[in-house]
Amino acid sequence: MTDAIQTISPETLKTEYLSAENCEFFASAHGFLGSKIKGKEYKRVILTRALPLTEPDKYICITDVEKTELGIIEDTSVFSPEQKKLIDDELSRRYFCPVITEIKSIKEKFGNFYFDVMIGDFKKNFTVKNLNKNIRYHGEGFDLIDVDGNRYRIPDFKAISPKSRRNLEPYLY
């Protein structure tokens, strides 16, 4: 940290980095995540990813239900497997995205892209406006964001069927 930054406001710059030593998680009777941070117990905490697309397990911000930041976990891998599972479960609930298993067809009409896809066994139709701006690439795959703000994930583009790839490929630039 440079001297210039330090002189601005130590209070606002103070970041509480949390690790397995000072932070412990537990699940409530109804499945919500609680935490004990530096000895203080919070019945419910909210986890938010700082880098949701590229580093989903690093820089996880913990807030209470009033959205007050309690600290940041630099890397979730430092937690025990049981603790990590609690963190992962909470993150997967919060960042849940239906996974597209097959793209049956894409129709382009008036700048809208009408997707007819399979999400597991469920047939789903959704519309994406301005495809270039509503696609978020990550690793080998990407998320599509429809007109309502819903996200649909293709975790690995190479892993879906060749027909599905052919349907989407012309629009992926």
Partner: peptide, 25 residues
């Protein structure tokens, strides 16, 4: 409101109880 979904939660004697998910739309 979550990233791509939402969840209806009820409060019962100060405890949060999840009821159902819904898509963000």
């Amino acid at each position: 409101r979550y990233t791509s979904t939402g969840r209806l939660v009820m409060s019962e004697n100060g405890e949060d109880v999840p009821l159902t998910y819904f898509s963000l739309g």
